[in-house]
Simulated assay, not measured.
Amino acid sequence: MEGYAMTPEDMERGLENSLVDSGPVYKTTVTAVAERKASRGWLWRLCGVLLIAALCAAAALLFAWCQHGRLATMQDGMEPQLEIFIGAKDTHNALKQIAGNAKAAIHLEGEYNPNLTTDTVQWRKDDGQAFSQGGFKLQGNQIVIPHTGLFFVYSQASFRVKCNGPGERTTPLSHVIWRYSDSIGVKGNLLSGVRSVCQQNYGNAESSIGEGWYNAVYLSAVFQLNEGDKLWTETNRLTDVEPEQGKNFFGVFAL
């Protein structure tokens, strides 16, 4: 019998026959492996997306918490410092000194002059202790904010009212700071304060009737303001506003 040598063609045919004979099992195995790989890949991608979303949410919460803490700390630290000047004779000097340390600040003095306006206190930036620096503008009796950031806003309106006697009913004193921002599109009440009038305990002290009763409405707080925002005041009982220099002021300084 003659010897037989297997050729490469015979080996290939044998391999093909083997794969054909075990076709269903082989195809099922390959398909299962491919499906497991695809499932794992999809699961890893989902985990990655969820991880990124969680990190973004945590970063946003951390930023908001830090900003809130910074704002609260600034306000808690600044307000007691300024509150002690209410009613003091050196209020203007103290406020000017604090604001003068800021890179951007404006401090205005005001009075009610019916010859100039009949509906508001008129603010001035070039009189007495008034000044402006760092880009602040006074336009149309409104303060224009020069850039976006945190600002300390404050104002005081002083009144001297003649009280006629016990039980007198009069309109309370009010002083309001308004804000207009292009991002909001409408004006909003930024700060407001109200004081009752002629609430003295007269008793038998009839000699106090007819005397001038003095009080001041002071406002202050820290706010996040935007470039171009406009701030202005609204005060009632304008004819009772104290005309003495240094009694009425309006200011803002950057933190």
Rank of each mutant, 00 (worst) to 15 (best):
Gly3His: 08
Thr7His: 06
Pro8Arg: 07
Leu15Ile: 08
Glu16Asp: 10
Asp21Met: 08
Ser22Tyr: 09
Lys37Pro: 04
Leu46Gly: 09
Cys47Gly: 13
Ala53Trp: 05
Leu55Asn: 10
Leu61Ser: 12
Leu62Trp: 06
Leu62Asp: 09
Gln67Pro: 03
Thr73His: 06
Asp76Arg: 14
Glu83Ala: 14
Ile84Glu: 13
Ala88Cys: 13
Asn93Met: 09
Gly100Leu: 12
Ala102Leu: 13
Pro114Tyr: 01
Asn115Cys: 07
Leu116Cys: 04
Thr118Asn: 09
Thr120Val: 06
Val121Asn: 02
Gln122Gly: 04
Trp123Ser: 10
Arg124Gly: 03
Asp126His: 11
Gly128Asp: 14
Ala130Met: 09
Phe136Arg: 11
Lys137Pro: 05
Lys137Gln: 15
Leu138Ala: 06
Leu138Asp: 09
Gly140Trp: 05
Asn141Phe: 04
Asn141Asp: 14
Ile143Tyr: 02
Ile145Lys: 01
His147Arg: 15
Leu150Gln: 05
Leu150Phe: 02
Phe152Leu: 15
Tyr154Asn: 00
Gln156Ala: 07
Asn164Trp: 04
Gly167Val: 04
Glu168Arg: 03
Arg169Trp: 03
Arg169His: 06
Arg169Cys: 03
His175Phe: 04
Trp178Gly: 06
Gly185Glu: 01
Leu191Thr: 01
Val194Leu: 13
Ser196Gln: 14
Val197Lys: 08
Cys198Arg: 05
Gln200Thr: 11
Tyr202Gln: 10
Ala205Met: 15
Ser207Asn: 08
Glu211Arg: 14
Glu211Trp: 06
Trp213Leu: 12
Tyr218Arg: 04
Leu219Phe: 05
Ala221Thr: 07
Thr233His: 08
Thr233Lys: 10
Thr235Tyr: 02
Asn236Ser: 07
Val241Glu: 00
Pro243His: 02
Asn248Arg: 06
Gly251Asn: 00
